[in-house]
Write a protein that binds this DNA or RNA. Structure first.
Lengths: 110, 110
DNA sequence: AATTGATACCTTGTACCACAAGGTACTGAA
DNA sequence: TTCAGTACCTTGTGGTACAAGGTATCAATT
């Protein structure tokens, strides 16, 4: 119950930066959805498929991402996502917004 | 349109830490809803009444907050909120979760 | 050739929550 | 007694995370 509460808090915080995290990962390396879930998990950001797929589609529709299909020897083809120029620009804006938020909380928690 | 997008990003990030901000403010000083909105606005965290009132009620129902009524010479009585012991404990958990998130993003943005 | 397990894609239904908009009620001043 | 200011609260809408379930491909086993 208490543990649940804490998990809820964490997940709520993560939500706010989920898109930021995805663009950050894709900036360094093109990746497909299942791969992204793994990388986010490593970074202690838990996401499930039902969250990620619609999110990637949304970001693509906003012109932040693009993708290409690539064959795989270990299953069905993969949809490799990468940042567009607009996605790059938005990532920079997110950097600013994030810094501002971190500063705000430093002040509030002083 | 682009500006709108950026505002959207910011507001999404803020959402995740809104409860954290409220508990942080209330830890230092008891406050009523309208006062909280002002303080959050100063801290560049925009919230409207329709968001804050239900949120305060939720936090109260979770046992994180309590309140007392106080008369005012300048209008209707005010509902002053303050942290409970449980609220204090949850605030500490939020500190941890926040630090973890900040670290995670430092790594992702390196 | 058929089945199984692993991988990868995607959708649907539910629940929650932020926000816009609108409503109630108290106070003091015009 | 009407108005402006302050403060409380609710309702309706839209967005989104998540659980659960579905489809399709490939390789290895049966």
């Amino acid at each position: 119950m208490n543990q649940n509460n804490i998990e809820n808090i964490k997940s709520q915080m993560r939500r706010g930066v989920l898109e930021y995290c995805i663009l950050s990962i894709l900036e360094k390396k093109h990746a497909y959805a299942s791969e992204l879930i793994g990388k986010l998990k490593e970074a202690r950001i838990i996401v499930v498929e039902g969250t990620l797929y619609p999110l990637l589609t949304r970001q693509k529709n906003q012109g932040l991402l693009t993708y290409r299909w690539e064959e795989s020897t270990q299953g069905p083809p993969r949809k490799y996502y990468s940042l567009t120029d607009k996605g790059q620009a938005v990532l920079l804006e997110m950097d600013k917004a994030w810094k501002e938020l971190v500063e705000t909380l430093e002040i509030l928690r002083k």
